Simulated assay, not measured.
Amino acid sequence: MKSKRLEGREETILEPDLPIVDSHIHLFDLPNNRYMLDDYMADATGGHNIVASIYCETQVYSRTDGPEHLRPLGEVEFANGIAAMAATGQYGPCKVNHGIIGHANLSLGAQVGALLDRCMAAAPDRYRGVRHVAVEHPDDRPYKFIMTFKPPRGVLDTPGFPAGLAELEKRGLTFDAAVWDPTLPRLIALADQFPNLTFILNHMGTAVGVDMSPDEKAEIFARWRDNIRALAERPNVVCKTGGLGMPFWGFGFEAREDVVVSEELAKVWRPYFETAVEAFGPARCMMESNFPPDGRSSGYVPLWNAYKILTRGASAEEKAALYSGTAARIYRLEI
């Protein structure tokens, strides 16, 4: 699928001095799909003041041998190596992979504890938690956009999953929750079950609208809004406000041949973005580019301009929380 990530660089940068911790990025080198340190730095130095970023797992660099439950260690080692390179300043001022979220098969229960200990030892200054992707949908429409593998259904309901979360809780680590909107009620139940574990909702719990009619989308939005508000009532849950460039939402920007500008993005994204920020509040929201997946809809420059358009009415204190403060606090970063 064609990437738009380099488009829109001629846009005037809004609020160029506003410090941003990009709370969710991926790096990988796959056939015909490469996004590595040089690619991210080209985006991060495009005009917005990106001071640091958080690496989130893709399982691309998992080990290919050894005990299966320990194989995700390879990706943490990879991400930490990239972070060490970026920390030298030779590639630019951004602290890339300043925090690292690895993968663990939490369905294995207490067995993941050994992996978590190894990851904490491998990247003691940066390893902050785990993501175990649990996206699922009752029909196949959104799966056509899955770039790697189709996650199995019922991940959050596997018998070992709560025991896996308990291992995170014991170590003061966080859980990045990647779910689509039909699974939000199950996530709410888990947040209640583990009130001392920090849950970080990825991509605002994506309201899937692929190939759906306006009436279907309206129904989905209402359901998603109600679940987001209910989830926000749990004080141990924070929200990554972003991911809106992925095609799962059904906005259709990925099919556009012309350059998508920030004003267009902001207009379409506004109801979803404002719902999430209103529900959680700026102190429990952190901004994310989710690059390169969100590069299917627009370039990195207009993406951040769009978010700055959406937060024009926010106070300086609220912007500081949204763009850097919440991420730094939740992921325990020194910026």
Rank of each mutant, 00 (worst) to 15 (best):
L6E: 14
L303D: 03
E278C: 12
A42V: 10
P292I: 07
E77A: 13
G81A: 09
G92F: 09
V112F: 15
R5M: 15
G154C: 02
G129P: 05
K144N: 06
W249Y: 13
N290L: 06
T326V: 02
L333S: 01
T64H: 14
C56I: 12
L201H: 03
I200F: 10
M287V: 12
P124C: 12
P19Q: 02
V60C: 04
H24S: 01
L27K: 01
N290M: 09
T45Y: 11
A316L: 13
K240I: 08
D211F: 15
Y55L: 11
Y307E: 00
A123Q: 05
G242Q: 01
L6I: 15
H69S: 06
K4Q: 05
M246E: 05
R186I: 15
L6M: 15
A114Y: 13
I25C: 01
P293A: 11
E264P: 00
L322S: 04
R9T: 05
A222W: 14
A134K: 03
Q111G: 05
V277K: 07
W224D: 00
P292S: 11
L165G: 05
P214L: 06
W269A: 01
Y272P: 06
V260M: 12
P302A: 07
P19K: 05
L156Y: 10
A191N: 03
P142C: 12
P16L: 03
L244K: 08
G113W: 03
P214I: 01
S324G: 08
D211P: 08
I54D: 00
A321W: 14
E334N: 09
A79S: 06
A86D: 01
A104S: 11
G209M: 04
N236E: 09
I101D: 06
V301Y: 00
N290A: 13
I50C: 04
G109P: 10
D139R: 06
D38R: 08
V268M: 12
L244P: 07
H132G: 04
H48S: 02
Y307N: 03
M204H: 10
P214N: 01
P235F: 10
P16A: 03
G160K: 09
G299R: 00
G99P: 12
R284A: 07
H203N: 02
S298W: 02
Y272V: 07
A163Q: 14
G129K: 09
L106K: 01
S53F: 03
R9K: 13
A163L: 14
S289N: 03
Q90M: 15
T88N: 06
R223K: 12
N49I: 13
M147V: 15
T12Q: 07
L73Y: 04
P282S: 00
E257P: 09
D125F: 14
T64C: 15
F145H: 11
A79M: 09
F199P: 06
Y300F: 01
N32S: 14
M286H: 00
G299H: 07
K2I: 10
K144G: 05
L190D: 00
P185D: 05
H98D: 08
M1E: 10
T158D: 09
H48W: 04
I13W: 01
V51H: 06
V268Y: 03
K4P: 05
R9M: 14
N32H: 15
R312Y: 10
F145V: 00
T198L: 11
